[in-house]
Design a protein around this nucleic acid. Structure first.
Lengths: 196, 196
DNA sequence: CCTACCGATCGGTAGG
DNA sequence: CCTACCGATCGGTAGG
């Protein structure tokens, strides 16, 4: 009876359901039903419902961290750095859309200790992004913006991609990254400021 | 015993709780407790938990619609139009942050008929925004972008404001609107395209 | 992997 | 505005 990747099947099914209906609106019975099982059988493969969410969040958070670390290792030019950071971010989001969507929307449902741990990691990630903006400013290639504000605006436009991206849609992840990079670099470009 | 604005107090308390804990994680007992009442007493003032969400969503949706209609009535220049549309949008979001936050995050928990009605209204709002971008393109003042893409990117950066705006923070709603407008107009400005 | 089942909690009603 | 209470549903356990 034991299937090799039953655990993965459970995660995949659960995340697909949670993306559509939300974490709280997806019951263990829903997940089991989609796999032709009974709810208690799920506990032979996973430890709790919350663990489904937690494992997913840490996995995605880890992917983001790996991306930003790579950017800082390889690139020096702030524009290139920002462009690659955007590219990695979009790659993570689009590579496993169900997991990313659940991560972005449902992490609040974790217990406070787990949630706090994620917030720390998110803040660290945002600080690394912000560092790129600060570097661009000090080198005189980005406008002197309110760093925090610019960062929030940039990340919001990146994260919103989970709302409308479709693997079979018009734009590939790479094209999305290109367009967003162009849009954002225009917004930051020191020598081309739009004057009202 | 009857207090004049008990209904409003219930809405206000419920939305504040739902913003922090989410719709599903806020029980009628939680809401009642915060008002020193018992849960069944709430039903003398409201009809259902879902109605709290529905009334809130329609109210905010109406405010957005009023804003975009006003913009289209008064302004002709596409840059001005876009700037004012951004300004109204930010005003609605910041004017009642609890309600806006709940609207943005929790509308999915409505029954399908109500949810569908909101989607129709949202699509209409987005179409009006998009019309402004199309006008700017045809007049040659905005870059020829993928309209849908540009629109999603713009609205995402606007809606993300509910995540970080604090009434007692550094930036006023007006300053936020100014910064976002500048950032977005730079991104769209035809004659100042950043070239990679 | 299942049956049987538990304690907790939910939105909401009856009746006053 | 309250007490008493309902039927439904939840995550999860016991035991096999």
């Amino acid at each position: 009876m034991a299937r090799p990747n039953r655990k993965e099947e459970i995660f995949k099914t659960a995340l697909a359901l949670m993306r559509v209906h939300g974490y709280r609106n997806t019951s263990m019975r829903d997940i089991a039903g989609a796999l032709n099982m009974e709810a208690p059988s799920l506990y032979n493969h996973i430890s709790s419902k919350e663990d489904l969410l937690w494992q997913t969040c840490t996995r995605i958070a880890g992917a983001f961290e790996k991306g930003i670390a790579e950017v800082n290792d390889i690139y020096f030019n702030p524009q290139e750095k920002l462009g690659m950071a955007i590219r990695f971010h979009i790659e993570v989001l689009t590579h496993d859309l169900d997991a990313s969507y659940v991560f972005v929307h449902e992490w609040r449902h974790l217990q406070s200790e787990l949630r706090d741990a994620l917030i720390v990691r998110r803040d660290r990630y945002e600080a690394a992004f912000r560092e790129i903006l600060a570097q661009g400013e000090s080198e005189g290639v980005f406008v002197d913006s309110d760093n925090k504000f610019a960062l929030l605006t940039i990340l919001s436009s990146l994260n919103w991609v989970v709302e409308w991206y479709r693997p079979d849609g018009d734009m590939s992840p790479s094209q999305i990254a290109n367009q967003l990079t162009e849009f954002i670099l225009n917004g930051l470009n020191k020598h081309h400021n739009y004057v009202r």
